[in-house]
């Protein structure tokens, strides 16, 4: 890919580079609005489950891996910080910093997925996977099974989003390394950042709903 021109021109349908960048960001926000509803349906199912079987959900919540969940929250929050810092670096044409920060963000995403995979493994060995090997002796076994069904659905789809985000960030890092961006044109980095922050926000809500429920109980 050639070096970015010092004075890039907008595509023909835009009057200015600013208008083009605003339109791209607007498109991502419209997509994110649909993503809110995509996760919203599953969160509604969770809300119903928790309202209907509060004790079963509390017991299930105490089964979850609080240490892995909390460390993963720390990892994703930190990755959002490095992503925001990367966008700042792009804006100020700090190319090396941009590439490094994107790489760190992608690595933090991989760390998140690795920890999540280890967590899934422990849940498999403890027979907590509904439909495959769920076995639970508790009086609330049915509600616990429903909780774990939603747990795998929510974290699984969130994990797919993290995977897509890592892919986008790696593409951005490669393009940044080749000099595709300048202070006048870094829209792809910014829009990728919006997506990554959204995935972080989804986790910000999943964390208390999955890991913190029932912790103050017996």
């Amino acid at each position: 890919m050639p070096e970015a021109p010092a004075n890039p021109m907008p595509e023909p349908q835009y009057a200015t580079m600013e208008q083009q960048a605003d339109t791209a960001a607007f498109g991502m926000w419209v997509f994110l609005a649909t993503e809110i509803l995509f996760f919203g349906g599953m969160l509604l199912a969770y809300t119903w489950l928790r309202a209907s079987y509060p004790e079963g959900v509390a017991e299930a919540g105490r089964h979850t891996r609080i240490v892995i969940g909390s460390v993963n929250t720390l990892v994703l929050l930190t990755s959002s910080f490095t992503m925001a810092w990367a966008v700042h670096a792009a804006e100020h044409e700090q190319r090396r910093a941009l590439v490094r920060l994107l790489a760190v963000t992608a690595l933090l995403g991989l760390l998140f997925l690795g920890l999540k995979g280890y967590e899934y493994h422990t849940e498999w060995t403890e027979h907590l996977v509904p439909g495959l090997n769920f076995h639970e002796e508790s009086a609330h076994a049915q509600a616990i099974e429903l909780f774990y069904f939603l747990y795998f659905l929510l974290t699984g789809i969130h994990g797919i989003h993290v995977t897509i985000g890592i892919g986008l960030i790696v593409v951005m890092a490669v393009r940044a390394r080749r000099g595709a961006f300048s202070s006048r044109y870094y829209t792809p980095v910014e829009v990728t950042g919006l997506y990554w922050h959204f995935v972080d926000i989804v986790w910000i809500f999943l964390y208390p709903l999955i890991y913190l429920v029932g912790r103050s109980g017996p």
């Binding site: 929050l77 959002s80 910080f81 925001a84 950042g193 922050h197 972080d200 926000i201 910000i204 809500f205």
Partner: peptide, 11 residues
């Protein structure tokens, strides 16, 4: 509160 911080300052 966390989501608002991310929305306001990161996004």
């Amino acid at each position: 509160a966390k989501a608002l911080l991310v929305l306001a300052l990161f996004m």
